[in-house]
Design a protein around this nucleic acid. Structure first.
Lengths: 226, 226
DNA sequence: ATGAAAAAATGCAGGCTCTGCAAAATTGGC
DNA sequence: GCCAATTTTGCAGAGCCTGCATTTTTTCAT
């Protein structure tokens, strides 16, 4: 190793890694317990115990108990935005976004078991489903800004995606209509694709559903034939 | 009066009216208090006191404190769906939905003051914004079914919209991809329109923004010119 | 390595949220 | 006015969540 300081070179030091691990452990414990006993019957105490930390520490990682059931992969949106900026310049915004999302979704299928459990938990408690839907859309602002950057397309803008500074605090950017609309519609597309695919899991491949949805969008949502 | 029973003919008796009034009073009190003191600093006790009922009664009307800030007009979605079924048969699904939503939105501007307060509350607490976004999308399932009915378009289907039976309990219908996608995209369109209009309230008329958004959708979200 | 500084985990006190249950008040129909 | 149905209310208790002080762990310079 060429790192004499003891600080890890890979991803930011042992501190960061431990935090990620703790957070992941809490989220996974929450989902597994909820899948087994029902989300309402899972206390913060139980989640914390399963993850091996104190109750107080749980609240250092999540703002509320429900967040542990809802927030799956906090880094997913960052990866999508990065992929969007790095996509070939000759793709239309809609196509570039489709490819970026497709890559992320096939990536997500690697942890298929946890996703299934997660879906089951949300199915069984509408309360959490609503929160989850809302959480997904909270990313939209950031995605819209990235779309705007891709469209404007200057070289300087190709720099790294800034770490998510959270919340609607920063205004003044991404006020354009088109990027926002595209971000919102893409979110809707993902959601509908997953939903439709879940209902007919045996019949269809997810990739096909996903492509059909984006084809409908690109065609301007024409009335279906009968 | 030609009603000798004492039971009110208009909308279902005094009991119903009182419940509506109580619910509205609670919701309005919640929004006004939140606008003044910040949503986090408003207790259920304060809301209940302002509405003149007990704390326990508050929880007979809302499942959680936050719901009082989030649920605005529970009947709006029913009106939209009714309008959608009654729209001229020669409109495309996208156009019919646009008109139905436009009617509802101009209707909503009548209570403009409360809506402004409501928007301010959500702006100041992202936590509630997330919940609100999620709540709006919970209607999507119902809207998708109505769209499916309009498309299939038999005479029998033109009957009244059944009272919202709540939740994902009834499956088996509206499994088609297109209605779901249209419902989801329309929801996104409304959201983006409102958002964009709020940012540039002085410059633009809402109706214009709304039309532009649907024009973009109908055109297949082409890359904007530069 | 060692000690000081920074960051994170923990325990605890206390207020608020939410639910189940039973009693009291209100409404509708006779 | 009186009975039945519905709604409101108080109360107890469990659980959620926060602020603060303390302890433990990690980082960094010496």
């Amino acid at each position: 190793m060429q790192d004499m300081t003891g600080k890890n070179s890979a991803n930011g030091g042992l501190r960061e890694r431990k935090k990620r691990a703790t957070r992941a452990a809490l989220a996974e414990a929450a989902v597994r317990l909820a899948a087994e006993h029902g989300a309402d019957n899972v206390t913060v105490e139980a989640i914390s115990a399963a993850a091996g930390v104190s109750v107080r520490t749980f609240f250092n990682y999540f703002d509320s108990r429900d967040d542990a059931f809802v927030v799956i992969d906090a880094d997913a949106s960052v990866r999508v935005r990065q992929a969007l900026l790095e996509a070939p310049a000759d793709l239309t915004p809609l196509d570039a976004l489709r490819e970026a999302l497709a890559a992320e979704l096939t990536e997500a299928e690697r942890q298929h078991e946890l996703w299934s459990l997660h879906a089951e938990v949300l199915r069984n408690s509408p309360h959490l489903l609503v929160r989850s839907l809302g959480a997904h859309m909270a990313d939209e602002a950031g995605l819209a800004e990235t779309i705007a950057r891709r469209i404007s397309g200057t070289a300087a803008d190709r720099a790294d995606v800034p770490p998510d500074e959270g919340g609607p605090g920063e205004r003044g950017r991404a006020l354009d209509l088109y990027p926002r609309l595209l971000a919102a519609v893409a979110g809707a597309a993902v959601r509908v694709s997953v939903q439709h695919w879940c209902d007919r899991q045996d019949e269809l491949a997810f990739a096909d559903v996903f492509r059909e949805v984006f084809a409908l969008l690109a065609a301007g949502l024409p009335a279906p034939e009968r």
